[in-house]
Simulated scan of single mutants.
Amino acid sequence: MTRPIRLIADDYGLAPGVSDAILELIERGRLTGTGCMTGFPEWEAAAARIRPFRGRAAIGLHLTLTDQIAAAGPSSLAPEGKLPGLSSLALPVRRGRIDERDVHAELDAQYGRFVEMLAGPPDYIDGHQHVHFLPMVRNWLLARFGASARKPALRGAPGLPGMDAAAPKIAAVAALAAGFNGSMRRAGFSVMTPLSGIYDWRQPEKFASTLRAAIKTLPEQGVFMCHPGHVDDILRARDPMQAVREVEYTVLSSQAFGDILDKAGVRVMDGGA
């Protein structure tokens, strides 16, 4: 009997090349699903392409509050229509200049675009740069879904493995996520945890070993996040994470990855999160 592992790709909709790579991997059974960024002009076309996979793959909402265009337009969150850098949200002294109602309006807009184009709510919710762990976003999750009988699953906090090159980054994300798992479970959400897949993406060679470690140790309730993609001009204009996406795609699509899964008695989990 094989053990399932949940592999989720972030950033579907960020750029056509990213969406292409993710769809290829879903079709090949190399991903459990993907989180969608719905604020871009290409979202309608991207949604049409992934819609047939609903029910076969876990299709989530990848909440985006940093660096990209604002789906809800200009506000205290995005004075010129562009979302701020992460420090403006993560540092309390800077976050205090942002009206929480504007954050909720932006999240409502992204959620509404998902539901409109995919004819229903997301299977799960997580956040670009882990913004779903922020207090303002926790409040939005509770306000929107707290009374709902059908809640989306949520991506939870990372575990803290033995100290390695990525350990400071893992610790930083864990600190941002402090209290998230417990509070959301008490509110009735299913939480996918521990989160795995965090490494220094400026060192692409680390991805394969990070993935192999997850195959050996990640429990069924956990999730491994990844960022496969093909680099195109739109991605170059929008995001600094570029060449490493090709590396992740190559690893995930390789025969060697399939062989590692078979040898370990592990399969990529199907369908809903």
Rank of each mutant, 00 (worst) to 15 (best):
197 G>Q: 11
258 G>L: 08
107 L>C: 08
15 A>W: 06
161 P>E: 00
271 G>E: 05
73 G>F: 05
25 L>D: 01
258 G>F: 08
137 V>D: 11
217 T>L: 00
63 L>K: 07
81 G>Q: 02
136 M>T: 09
250 T>S: 15
178 A>N: 06
35 G>N: 02
65 L>I: 13
15 A>C: 09
38 T>L: 11
156 G>A: 07
221 Q>W: 03
155 R>I: 14
186 R>P: 09
90 A>H: 00
18 V>E: 11
181 N>Q: 08
262 D>K: 13
39 G>L: 12
27 E>V: 10
179 G>E: 01
145 F>I: 07
14 L>Y: 02
272 G>D: 14
239 D>Q: 06
216 K>H: 00
164 D>S: 15
126 D>Y: 04
63 L>H: 08
144 R>G: 00
271 G>V: 08
16 P>N: 10
93 V>F: 14
245 R>Y: 04
176 L>D: 09
260 I>M: 14
50 I>L: 15
189 F>A: 04
140 W>P: 04
168 P>M: 09
141 L>D: 01
211 L>H: 10
140 W>L: 01
140 W>I: 07
66 T>I: 14
259 D>I: 12
86 L>W: 02
143 A>E: 13
103 V>C: 12
136 M>W: 09
89 L>T: 03
180 F>R: 01
262 D>S: 13
143 A>G: 04
39 G>W: 10
263 K>W: 12
260 I>E: 15
54 R>M: 05
216 K>V: 01
254 S>M: 03
95 R>L: 08
143 A>D: 14
227 H>T: 07
217 T>I: 09
270 D>F: 07
186 R>T: 14
180 F>H: 05
234 I>V: 15
106 E>G: 03
190 S>C: 11
225 M>W: 04
35 G>H: 04
267 R>G: 03
17 G>W: 06
268 V>K: 03
260 I>F: 06
15 A>M: 12
152 P>V: 05
109 A>I: 03
165 A>M: 05
37 M>F: 02
125 I>P: 05
273 A>I: 10
204 P>T: 13
19 S>V: 07
256 A>N: 07
219 P>Y: 05
178 A>F: 01
107 L>W: 07
134 L>P: 06
250 T>V: 09
3 R>H: 14
114 F>D: 06
99 D>L: 10
169 K>G: 13
14 L>P: 12
99 D>F: 03
156 G>R: 06
167 A>S: 15
273 A>G: 10
151 K>Q: 09
163 M>I: 13
77 L>D: 09
267 R>K: 10
153 A>W: 04
88 S>G: 12
